[in-house]
Simulated scan of single mutants.
Amino acid sequence: MRIMRSHRPLTRPLPAFLIFLLAALAGCSTGTRVVLLPQEDGTPSSVVVRAREGTGAEAVLSAPFQRATAAQGASGAPRIDQADPARVRADNAALFDMAPPKGKRYTVYFDAGGTVLTAESQKVMEDVLADALARSGGDIVITGHTDTIGTGASNDVLSAQRAQQVRQILIDRQFPAERIEAAGRGERDLAVPTADETEEPNNRRVAIEVR
């Protein structure tokens, strides 16, 4: 049996745990099986399973614990059915035990109009760093946000600057730069919906996902 963790479009290499699963469970004497595991955060995901390279025969798994089975040497599309979650976990307990810890999310906040973290958020950064360094091979995704004061274009720039500020703090504390992604979302995705030109401290934030 091969077990594949569900995935979304990635801009970084697959996690080491996933690579190990694919290598260790690449096939069996009767063929190959792939089971789609759910995302930790519940977001939809899918994976394409091909029976044999060049045949064009494939199946798409798009629901948690869907299973595709391709007989050895078969050229047709893999057969899809639903695996029992408890059975999958029981039969592969050692592999599930090797899974990295679940990701954690943090939010830090900024003083108005700039890239200075609030005093409380500076303390939160210590927790972020400790959690990140405790994960061998882990990575960090940083997303900057603003309130609705200013133009959309200027807030796009400010949110990116805030994200980069947090990224640099982590790099300065010896977290590998290549394992950090940072981007700004401007005044989109407000934590607290407001009218335009409204100052809202809870919207002046950076979301940090450590995984």
Rank of each mutant, 00 (worst) to 15 (best):
R2H: 04
R2P: 01
M4E: 05
R5A: 13
P9G: 10
P9T: 11
L10A: 13
T11E: 04
R12D: 10
P15W: 05
F17T: 00
F17P: 02
L18D: 12
I19K: 15
F20Y: 07
L21F: 04
L22S: 02
A23L: 04
A24M: 11
L25T: 15
A26H: 11
A26S: 15
S29H: 08
S29D: 11
T30F: 09
T32L: 12
R33N: 08
V35F: 07
P38G: 13
T43P: 05
T43N: 08
P44T: 15
S45Y: 02
R50E: 14
E53P: 08
E53N: 06
T55C: 12
A57I: 10
A57C: 11
E58I: 11
A59L: 10
P64G: 05
T69C: 07
A74P: 06
A74H: 15
S75F: 14
S75W: 09
A77Y: 08
P78V: 03
P78N: 14
P78K: 05
I80E: 06
D81C: 06
A83W: 06
D84W: 08
A86Q: 11
R87T: 14
V88K: 10
N92E: 15
A93S: 13
M98N: 07
A99T: 12
P100V: 01
G103C: 10
G103K: 09
K104I: 00
T107Y: 09
V108P: 12
Y109W: 12
Y109S: 06
F110D: 08
D111I: 05
D111W: 05
A112L: 14
A112F: 11
T115Q: 07
T115H: 06
L117V: 02
T118P: 02
A119F: 05
S121P: 05
Q122N: 08
Q122C: 10
M125C: 11
M125L: 14
D131N: 14
A132K: 06
L133D: 11
R135E: 03
S136K: 10
G137D: 07
G138A: 07
I140F: 05
T143A: 14
G144Y: 03
H145G: 10
H145F: 13
I149V: 12
G150M: 09
T151I: 00
T151Y: 00
T151C: 00
G152Q: 13
S154P: 03
S154A: 08
D156I: 01
V157Y: 04
S159K: 03
Q161W: 14
R162V: 00
R162C: 00
A163V: 08
Q165P: 00
Q165W: 00
V166M: 01
V166Y: 01
R167T: 09
L170E: 02
I171Y: 02
I171T: 00
F175R: 00
I180Q: 04
A182P: 01
A182L: 15
A183R: 14
A183S: 14
G186Y: 11
R188W: 05
V192H: 03
V192C: 09
P193T: 07
E197F: 04
E200I: 00
R204W: 02
R204F: 01
R205W: 15
V206I: 06
